[in-house]
């Protein structure tokens, strides 16, 4: 089973990297970019019976730092 995990900074947590990229997009002349937030995308290949609880636990314990980050899990159908 293929799993996609999207890790993003919580709303309200300042993202200096996103801000710098936003600034760079402005510099390239792209107009109308309201905000840029940078996160992390992780692909997992797990055994078919892997439970949602186990996936949540992987995110809580390692893949995301829930002090500053939110995560979203997406299962990819084959």
């Amino acid at each position: 089973m293929k799993i996609r995990v999207y890790v993003s900074l919580k709303p309200g947590v300042l993202d200096p990297q996103g801000r710098a990229v936003h600034h760079a997009l402005d510099g390239l002349g792209f107009e109308g970019v309201e905000d840029v937030r940078i996160g992390r995308f992780i692909e997992l290949d797990v055994a078919d019976g892997t439970t949602d609880e186990a996936l949540d636990s992987m995110c809580e314990k390692l893949l995301a730092n829930t002090v500053i980050e939110d995560y979203r899990i997406e299962k990819v159908e084959r």
Binding site: L14, P16, Q17, A20, V67, I68
Partner: peptide, 17 residues
């Protein structure tokens, strides 16, 4: 220590980058 949960909070990229 923060990642291990032994201290609260987190250390993020410096604001200046």
């Amino acid at each position: 220590l923060t990642e291990a949960g032994l201290l609260p909070g987190a250390l993020m990229r410096n604001a200046s980058q």
